[in-house]
Design a protein around this nucleic acid. Structure first.
Lengths: 245, 245
DNA sequence: CGGACAATTGAAGCCGGTCAAAACTGGTGG
DNA sequence: CCACCAGTTTTGACCGGCTTCAATTGTCCG
């Protein structure tokens, strides 16, 4: 399980959807597309909106999230370079069930629905790649739900820091070097906790020498420890209240 | 959103995967299959196992869940009559990321991997039906995650009771008649809480006249109230601590 | 240099988890 | 038909992890 999640691949599996296509197919998709530069914080689409196409991230980072009526934001995925987004609603033939917005300045190509469908119809490769990607995403969601239900904030934070590090640190020079840029609020919404709780937990990790952090940067110092803290096996031995008087 | 989730269709969308296929395709799938009778509580497959085919539920109910190392069980979906299970891992080309077991005595057909793949290759319909189903499942997971993060046990319980009622009560005679059979433990694991907490919340609903229950049966008495309690809009007005002294 | 926003720290209290034990159920055999 | 056991449901008590509210510090820019 651990090996599965943290397997050495520099890129995670879901990222590979687009890469699996032939060059011809990639061009057929991107050809009709319109590339646009998004500033940090711009919305790509909104929960409840009508899907009119999909998006290809040439550079940048996009968060997928859902907003609650009270203004809260639940982030459940971060998309990076080379990933496609927005195809779920299109495939499911329904309205967007989530929103997407850039976290940093990004360059993104919009692929109109018709063009996407055309390639989809003519290419078994795309169809299969999508099935594979969606099948895989399923296991990610399972894990995500299980984590939310059974893990503490500390464990979830450690886990997310690991994922962020693996996904967004191309600088593979050293196990120890890794920087993560993400506002406290975003990180809290990704981990699924209040930002105050998040901050306190970060402090604690720093005090324990597991991470280092400046105002906007988090760096994993002790990789082994943070893997241990993430407790991927779920063996968490709750300090039992058994003082046996 | 509410209308979307609770739309009048007697069956929920995901159930319809198999139904979308032509009769020929259905037969091509089930033809080579082997039907087997499972007693309540039997496992179909286990987290970490190698997928060798998919399952079609002729009758009965199957829970999809994940076990934690400590023995806990996280249920995230209940499959009913006419549904397919186990295709995610096959499509994603990986090991099962979840387990499946019957909740009541069930009649289930096993479709070997090769036969499934054969039909998948030759039929654009199945391929498209799968894409649609998976795309839709995505939105269910989003909702599930959001619910876990932002809703109280009371709200989640109300929501799940509604879903159970809609999905497993073919007896459409009356809005009020509805029986749900599920052990307290299973229900707790479905809602995502401890069974003691669940029991207390059930008591409370009963005391408030929203539901009725005997030892193993739960019946929704006041449908409007329970919809309200589920708080599908997320407008939960937390009793603000503002006593303004 | 102030104004806005993000990050941090402090304090209080509730929700829900855990442990423990009682009440209830159904099934079994004497 | 009753006594008994095993499993499930229910009730009680406790308390700790998180959320929430509030206030302070830090930081980036115009």
């Amino acid at each position: 399980m651990i090996t599965k999640i943290l397997s050495g691949n520099s890129r995670l599996k879901t990222d590979q959807l687009f890469e699996q296509l032939t060059v011809q197919e990639q061009e057929a998709l991107l050809g009709p597309g319109v590339t646009h530069v998004y500033k940090k914080g711009e919305m790509l689409f909104r929960d409840g909106g009508i899907p009119t196409g999909i998006y290809y991230i040439r550079s940048g980072v996009v968060k997928k999230f859902k907003t609650t009526a009270k203004g809260g934001e639940q982030i459940f995925y971060l998309c990076g370079e080379g990933e496609l987004i927005g195809y779920h609603a299109l495939l499911g033939e329904e309205l967007y069930s989530d929103s997407a917005a850039t976290i940093i300045d990004s360059q993104i190509t919009f692929i109109p629905k018709d063009d996407f469908v055309k390639v989809l119809r003519s290419s078994a490769t795309l169809s299969n790649a999508l099935l594979k990607a969606l099948g895989h995403e399923f296991s990610l969601f399972i894990n995500s739900i299980t984590n939310l239900r059974t893990k503490s904030v500390r464990e979830r934070l450690a886990f997310n820091l690991l994922l962020l590090d693996m996904k967004f640190n191309s600088s593979k020079q050293s196990d120890i070097a890794s920087d993560i840029q993400l506002s406290r609020t975003d990180l809290a919404n990704l981990v699924g906790t209040a930002k105050e709780t998040l901050v306190r937990q970060l402090q604690e990790f720093k005090r324990e020498g597991i991470i280092d952090k400046t105002d906007k940067t988090i760096r994993i110092v002790d990789r082994k420890r943070i893997i241990k803290e993430a407790n991927l096996l779920g063996l968490n031995q709750k300090k039992s209240r058994s003082n046996i008087p």
